[in-house]
Nucleic acid binder design. Structure first.
Lengths: 139, 139
DNA sequence: CATAACTGTTACTATATTAGTCACAGTTTA
DNA sequence: TAAACTGTGACTAATATAGTAACAGTTATG
């Protein structure tokens, strides 16, 4: 379970908010659709709301709706909103002085992986929520 | 700790194997350099060995050495050798029949994320172990 | 005005993945 | 034959994440 699924849950919630206009788009309904607890959904919704992707109204008959056009929301926006962990993590440890590798590998690796992270984020930025919604509706 | 650091440790080990020719490249030495236990290093070494990236000799004065030229080893090779987790994981749950999104989102998302995973792997394949070694030696 | 039905948030528990440790079998050199 | 390696398996510890419950705050509606 130690794998972050918030990103995919977030996409699900946003897609549902985009598709099911009119019907009750509440965290309770989402929880059923995603098959998790309303509380967990609310936690994700809260992040999306703070990131300006989702607009929520409180009170009775409160609901969730996209804050902007689905075309204007990329998967990268969602990725950042839930602040998913980096693709790679570099192990951290004190440098062992006599060892050249031990002292310098971290910087070298970080530099290299920054490129990879960027490649991934660029790819995410090219996929819009709208394309996901279209795909879902097509079937 | 539920973050996979084996990849970066693997790179460290391979870099050390490339740099420190001659000196004792044993799992014990690596453990000091990486600041972890010899046993854990051996587990990673074992994977790298099976993947054909590292050549080990057993017995007294056994050691580790690159199985091929550092130029011929990409970070993608290493990534695959330690079988690091995918960049994204899609949450799994039973489909909720009446909900269109619940039934179709998974396939749509998988398709989209496959692109991203591929972008990441392509980026990794463009970085060679040799470039890391050069970087380390430069300093 | 009271109640019902939402969101937003905190605190706590359960679970799964990963690293760390120990132990020992197998191998090879001296 | 002993010493010093690799290779593995079993077990424990640490930690990130999901799951759960409880409650405060908000708003529509009778």
């Amino acid at each position: 379970m130690a794998v972050n699924t918030q990103f995919s849950i977030a996409v699900h919630i946003l897609a549902a908010s985009g598709c099911c206009r009119g019907e009750g788009t509440t965290t309770g309904k989402f929880a059923l659709s995603v098959n998790t607890s309303p509380s967990f959904v609310r936690r994700v919704v809260s992040k999306l709301s703070k990131a300006g992707l989702l607009k929520t109204t409180t009170g009775k008959s409160g609901s969730c709706g996209l804050a902007k056009d689905a075309k204007m929301i990329s998967l990268l926006d969602i990725y950042r909103a839930v602040d998913a962990p980096k693709a790679f993590s570099i192990h951290n440890y004190p440098e062992q002085k006599p060892c050249l590798v031990s002292c310098h590998i971290k910087a070298s690796l970080e530099k290299a992986l920054k490129k990879t992270q960027k490649a991934m984020e660029e790819s995410l930025s090219e996929i819009s929520l709208a394309s996901i919604v279209t795909e879902v509706n097509k079937k």
